[in-house]
Simulated assay, not measured.
Amino acid sequence: MTQSETRRTPGTPCWVSLMVHGLAATQEFYGALFGWEFWPGPQQLGPYVRAVLDGKEVAGIGQLPPDRHLPIAWTTYLATDDADATAESIRHCGGTVGVGPLDAGEAGRMAIASDPAGAVFGVWQGGEHVGAVVAGPPGTPAWNELVTRETSAVGKFYQAVFGYAMEPAAGADHDHVRLCLDDHPVASLHGVGNALPRDKGAHWMTYFEAADVDAAAARVAGLGGRVLTEPHTTASGRVAMVADPEGAVFTLLRSGG
């Protein structure tokens, strides 16, 4: 398959990655929860593995240096054809570029940035690695949503940088919009006002597909993680917000049910 055949439309969420202190223990947790196996990934920034499901790459996990005490969180990466130009656009539109742009070997070129509300996200210019190559089965990233105080101002930032069209999310509350590319929703923004956690601030949330959300949430707790919101049904499907043993928060989703 050629690069042109697998090119991701700029702005499309294409990868999720997690940096932790205990790489081996984290692999054990997600392997038991989702059935992931792990392959070595680029080592330029330290030990890093790619999570694999049925031979297809779905996510990345890296190990933080012992002296780095950063928040442990899943990071959503948005595709770009030119990481350097996107980084410049992020700065011009009021965001901050904290890491890069830099090469991840032959895999591609990346940067880590934050929007004007402080939510961290990644930018990925695919080389040999274009991003996740499977979606839909349990254990794969199903959706990415920015949880922020209000969507209007930050929505303009993402529109300016990535060219999204915005539309109200069907069946949702008044400050919930979808980001669309080529008339296709690819991510969403959810303004939660004062319900935004003070200790977390604005953040991107990764949703992982689960065959049975209730059973998966119970498994999280049994593996040493925490259930932050009990399984419940929403317009998007059945969901539960959970955290892994190091505190990385994600949401389990059973689409449409």
Rank of each mutant, 00 (worst) to 15 (best):
P71T: 05
A107K: 01
I72Y: 07
L146V: 06
Q43K: 06
H176S: 02
V147Q: 10
R7T: 11
D214E: 14
A202C: 11
S236L: 09
L64K: 12
A195E: 15
G257D: 12
Y77Q: 03
M1A: 14
Y77E: 03
A135V: 05
L45F: 14
G22E: 15
T9S: 08
P47D: 10
D175L: 04
A59G: 15
G41Q: 07
A211T: 07
R68S: 09
L146S: 09
V52Y: 01
M166Q: 05
A87D: 01
P65K: 12
A202H: 12
P10S: 10
K156N: 06
G193D: 15
G55D: 04
I72E: 06
R7V: 10
A170F: 00
V49W: 00
R238G: 14
S188Q: 00
A195V: 07
F157Y: 05
H190N: 08
V192I: 15
F157N: 02
R68W: 09
H176A: 03
V161H: 05
L33D: 03
A51H: 05
R109F: 08
R91Y: 08
D183W: 00
A221W: 12
L189C: 06
R91G: 03
E37W: 08
A221I: 07
E246I: 02
R50T: 14
F250S: 07
D103N: 12
H92G: 12
Q63H: 11
F121V: 02
L23P: 14
G171H: 00
A165D: 11
E145F: 00
T140F: 05
A195T: 08
H129F: 15
L196E: 13
V120C: 11
G60P: 09
E209F: 01
V227M: 05
Q44Y: 07
A216F: 04
L146N: 09
T75P: 04
D199H: 14
T26I: 05
W124L: 09
Q159P: 00
Q159G: 00
K56M: 10
R226N: 10
L181N: 01
V239Y: 08
D103Y: 05
A59V: 14
D244N: 13
E57I: 15
M205V: 12
S114T: 00
Y30P: 12
P101C: 04
V58E: 08
I61D: 04
G35C: 02
G98A: 03
L33G: 04
S89W: 11
D244K: 13
E230Q: 14
L33E: 06
G55Y: 04
L146R: 07
Q125T: 07
H174S: 11
L189N: 01
E230I: 02
V147Y: 08
Y207C: 10
G11F: 02
E5M: 13
L252V: 05
P116C: 09
R8L: 15
V134G: 00
G62D: 11
D54K: 06
M241R: 15
M166V: 03
Q27M: 09
G256R: 04
G60R: 13
A83Y: 01
